[in-house]
Design a protein around this nucleic acid. Sequence first.
DNA 1: AATGAATGAGTATTCATTCAT
DNA 2: AATGAATGAATACTCATTCAT
Lengths: 221, 221, 221, 221
Amino acid sequence: MPRAERERQMMAAAVRTFGRRGYRAASMDEIAELAGVSKPLVYLYLNSKEELFTACVRQEAAALLAAVEAGVDPGQPADRQLWSGLTAFFSHTAEHPDGWVVLNRQARTQGEPFAGEVAGLRDELVALVAGLIAAAAREARAACPASAGSGPADLAGRELPGQDLTGLAQALVGAAESLAGWANETPGVSPEEAAATLMNFAWTGLGNLLDGERWPPPSAR
Amino acid sequence: MPRAERERQMMAAAVRTFGRRGYRAASMDEIAELAGVSKPLVYLYLNSKEELFTACVRQEAAALLAAVEAGVDPGQPADRQLWSGLTAFFSHTAEHPDGWVVLNRQARTQGEPFAGEVAGLRDELVALVAGLIAAAAREARAACPASAGSGPADLAGRELPGQDLTGLAQALVGAAESLAGWANETPGVSPEEAAATLMNFAWTGLGNLLDGERWPPPSAR
Amino acid sequence: MPRAERERQMMAAAVRTFGRRGYRAASMDEIAELAGVSKPLVYLYLNSKEELFTACVRQEAAALLAAVEAGVDPGQPADRQLWSGLTAFFSHTAEHPDGWVVLNRQARTQGEPFAGEVAGLRDELVALVAGLIAAAAREARAACPASAGSGPADLAGRELPGQDLTGLAQALVGAAESLAGWANETPGVSPEEAAATLMNFAWTGLGNLLDGERWPPPSAR
Amino acid sequence: MPRAERERQMMAAAVRTFGRRGYRAASMDEIAELAGVSKPLVYLYLNSKEELFTACVRQEAAALLAAVEAGVDPGQPADRQLWSGLTAFFSHTAEHPDGWVVLNRQARTQGEPFAGEVAGLRDELVALVAGLIAAAAREARAACPASAGSGPADLAGRELPGQDLTGLAQALVGAAESLAGWANETPGVSPEEAAATLMNFAWTGLGNLLDGERWPPPSAR
DNA sequence: AATGAATGAGTATTCATTCAT
DNA sequence: AATGAATGAATACTCATTCAT
């Protein structure tokens, strides 16, 4: 069997095992057995438990990021982009539960040497979301050119300082992570519904929500 | 030294060690040394690593929940309650970083026998938040009695089915968890600011936010 | 509570625990708890686990030996003495099952430092039985004074060299030990019946033996 | 080195160590060192201390039983079979002293989880002996066909109720166990002599028993 | 390309025993 | 006369990792 395929098998077994047991509790024996190969072969190909786990994290992070980025169509308005990105996010995590658990839970116990690896992914997601929020701000400004010149007060309303922007993005990403976990274990919640819930929550605001507003707003439907 | 005090020492050492290393990677040797006692004493008082960890989780969960509940004044309107609850949450997690890490990260690796323990805490938080959102909905209806009879569309706008309610609460709790982590490692973000960011995000809605709205709304100031 | 009574309590708890668990598996904690005292008190009175066990063995051995000796009436013929001694043996072991288990099983794992202690008891039992067999031989000779002078062949038949004597006694003691275990766990076997079974088995054999019969019988040679 | 051979080495070391120290006092470290391997290898091949001990007991029990059964020639009369079986028993125990100690002493501390294992062996030996005694009874009846019709008293004399039979077999097995211990530590007692001692002791007694004699003899009643 | 055989280093847990009071 | 508090030393068991083939 060619090396590349064997490696895929091993990675799949590793993701599954790490997802189910956690980094420390997973044993190389179990991974090798699940992959259907001998332990020395795992070491020959992937060097060590730590490297193997790091490779799993990197692979799953790249796949998730790619899925989200593929879901975002830069030609669309920012809220649409966010909505489709979230849908892609919820779809991907639902379809790769082990990988998602590895990323979201198992890789985040601090003190382990791969802590930075997954923090990197999260930072990329936060940056992506922050970018979308910033884009939305620009669009809002562009949509009301009149107000652009109406005064500094208005403008201030549309400017978000960097720290606020990051905080908002952190909140949105956290909300998405939480909803992903909840949606994956609650039957009958589709990725689209989860995305809509989050858009309602974040975009529209709870206050407006209670006034009957929903996302997408009627004008955009 | 009296037993109760020794136990407190041990629990503190355990929370610190579990927070820094994770459940599996923490060793009873390290905990005992940090507590300044011999290992057998830890076993004499707390029976086993698993029981010790469960005790830590329970203690930290109870403390966090108590802090949040103490921060919520039922005499206030729902948005005020939510804001003060969030402030208490961010304060508590900032003051007990090890306990927060134990709860939020280390206790959530699935497959371990205490998985349910921390899930319980999270469910309580979600329920608490869901209760506040439902209360807000009631208040909104009460505030516009006229609209109550004005038609089904309006009413529908103020009714939240249970699943939506839970989803929103999950999103809010996830956002808070995420912000707590970010605020704790970003210098200069106070609990109040974190709470305001989240209220802006959730209560007002990003859309309104970009239109210059802020929480608390001018009328409430 | 006076020291002597406390010591009796402890010894009783120890015999019970050692009997149920064995020397190594019994813990001083369990013994102290069963005796209703604190562990340091056990050490204060009985010094160490090994000394405690040795004391148990000595106590039970002395009690068993005393019971057997009390059952043997030197004024009776040897077979009667043997029968009543066996009855006393089976009665005592039935009434003190824990003590018997300690003597017969738990104290006989070699390598432990008290190995000699229980070997001593057994040697005394074997010597007692050997004495009875020798007495029986003397009685047999005395009962047939005529044959005493009839020739060396006859005499040889009634003389048992020391090694044979010891071997026979060992066999009889082993048979008794085995029957004691069997009788204690087989309902409906009384000490008298056990003694009768053994006498049936052994005595008629011994009798013939003393009359010069040997196996294989002459006809089969 | 091939696995099977290593396993044999380990079993031998284990039998020796368990025989010398007892189950609880034997340490896996000592066994591994005596076998000349590292401890993990012992665990890899034999799983746990308990399984290792059970395997030792099973192996030694099977070997002893096989030796005894090989010594019994069903074509021979019952007394010959018993004698040769006993000779095989004493030979085997003399040649495998560690195994015999494991079976006869170390495996019989009650409360340990393998208690049943060795009880099984003993029950098989008792059943085998009981079978031989029953066979002897049949042979005795067959040898005196005339007496078969001569009256109920005679017949009764040759019938042994099941419980008596078991009791006799227990006594004989116990006597053999005791003699084995004695013979093994008394220089100059050959297996044949031990077997002869026991046959002298037991067989002539059994013979009379089968002829209807009982203790106490009628004259003494 | 692949593996059977093997281990050094560590981990949770237990227990006989002592000290200060 | 009695105990609550405490520990040094040991033990069963596991695991990531390597070597010889």
